[in-house]
Amino acid sequence: MIYKIKLPIIIKKIQSTEIKEKSFHEIESNSLQTKKHLAREIYPRQSFFPEKK
């Protein structure tokens, strides 16, 4: 099946924001021995949220 789709400009803009895992896990390096992202390699997710004051 051959079809033609016009992607509306508005949707093109909405789809344009790409998020990569790396940007969530950039490590600030001070005295810690760190490497890029990865960290939560076994069961990766936020497991605790500090209570809002």
Binding site: I19, F24, E26, E28, N30, S31, L32, K35, R40, Q46
Partner: peptide, 25 residues
């Protein structure tokens, strides 16, 4: 954080609003 360890097994999770809610894995 003053960490005297030389092991490369420490990871600091940076966090922000998006990171809190999403776990892309």
């Amino acid at each position: 954080i003053d960490d005297p360890s030389t092991h490369k097994n420490r990871y600091l999770n940076s966090w922000n609003d998006i990171h809190f809610r999403l776990s892309i894995n």
